[in-house]
């Protein structure tokens, strides 16, 4: 790219770090642009995040922690964890299996399959909830059979889990497919030629190659699973202490003007988001080479 760098390829410095006046903007323009960018980010990202914690602690630490003594709050936390604990592993298995089929084999309609996997991303969460209401609702076409044989789906945990699975469906597959496409099949073929079984090849060769991307996908999938609001809202029925996840509970508390409690529960989710971002940044920084090219920056 830059010949100066190339010329000095084996020297312990990076000339590109130097500002090159030739292709740089005037100092004033640079500062204005940086100010505009950071101003925009602060206004739209940092301030909202900060306000969550400020609002939660508005009445002091006592009121903050009291919010978590409420059994309904605890029930919502529990339900959120249950939903994520079911949805994430299922999507993990799906992601691995889809990525394996798509990247290790050639077949017709592959591009269509990839597009279909991405579909839930482009569907409004409310519509995602709606489709399960149409299936399992009072007039739903699957409800008669399910009602008789399995039990209630809508307005109970199974519905919430289903909706969560739907909205987090593509996360892991999407992380793995580009990476595994990039890695090709040579490693696996070598393992097979050395006598490894298919399963051994997968666990001993493929899995180590994709573990960080997998973790990355699980992380994003989990963040969305615990935070999903729209889809879950439609199928939950909002039964307090029973079918409210944390985001739904936040809504109820907020609408009842229990602001400190609402923001206290919100602060938990905000902390989860910050941990997610921290681990994500760490993975991008430390294992950039082991994440898919689309993630490298």
């Amino acid at each position: 790219m830059n010949h100066t760098v190339k010329d000095a390829a084996f020297l312990p410095f990076e000339p590109l770090k130097q500002t090159n006046s030739v292709i740089n903007e005037p100092r004033l323009v640079r500062w204005l642009l940086i100010a505009a960018a950071l101003g925009f980010l602060s206004l739209f990202l940092l301030l909202p995040l900060l306000s969550v914690f400020v609002e939660a602690l508005r009445k002091g630490a006592g009121a903050y922690f009291a919010a978590f003594g409420d059994p309904e709050t605890l029930a919502s936390i529990k339900l959120t964890f249950i939903a994520a604990a079911i949805a994430v592993p299922l999507n993990l298995v799906f992601g691995l299996s889809a990525a394996w089929a798509i990247t290790k084999f050639e077949f017709r309609g592959k591009q269509l399959l990839i597009t279909c996997i991405d579909l839930p991303f482009s569907v409004s969460p409310v519509v995602a909830g709606l489709i399960f209401v149409l299936i399992f609702g009072a007039q739903g076409w699957a409800q008669p059979w399910f009602g008789d044989h399995i039990g209630k789906v809508l307005f109970s945990t199974p519905g919430i889990v289903l909706a969560t699975i739907f909205v987090t469906f593509p996360f892991i597959a999407r992380e793995l497919i580009p990476l595994m496409q990039e890695q090709g099949t040579e490693d696996e073929q070598a393992a097979l030629s050395l006598g490894a079984t298919g399963w051994q090849t997968f666990t001993k060769v493929t899995l180590p190659n994709i573990k960080w991307a997998l973790l990355y996908g699980v992380l994003l999938c989990n963040a969305r699973a615990m935070g999903e609001f729209g889809a879950v809202s439609v199928v939950s029925g909002h039964i307090r202490g029973l079918t409210n996840t944390m985001p739904l509970h936040i809504e109820i508390l907020y609408n009842e003007y229990q602001f400190v409690s609402a923001f206290a529960v919100a602060s938990l989710l905000a902390l989860l988001a910050m941990v997610t971002l921290a681990v994500k940044s760490f993975l991008e920084w430390r294992y950039a080479d082991q994440l898919a090219a689309t993630r490298r920056h």
Partner: peptide, 8 residues
């Protein structure tokens, strides 16, 4: 915005 729940 990817990580923060929308309700929050």
């Amino acid at each position: 915005p990817f990580a923060l729940p929308t309700a929050v």
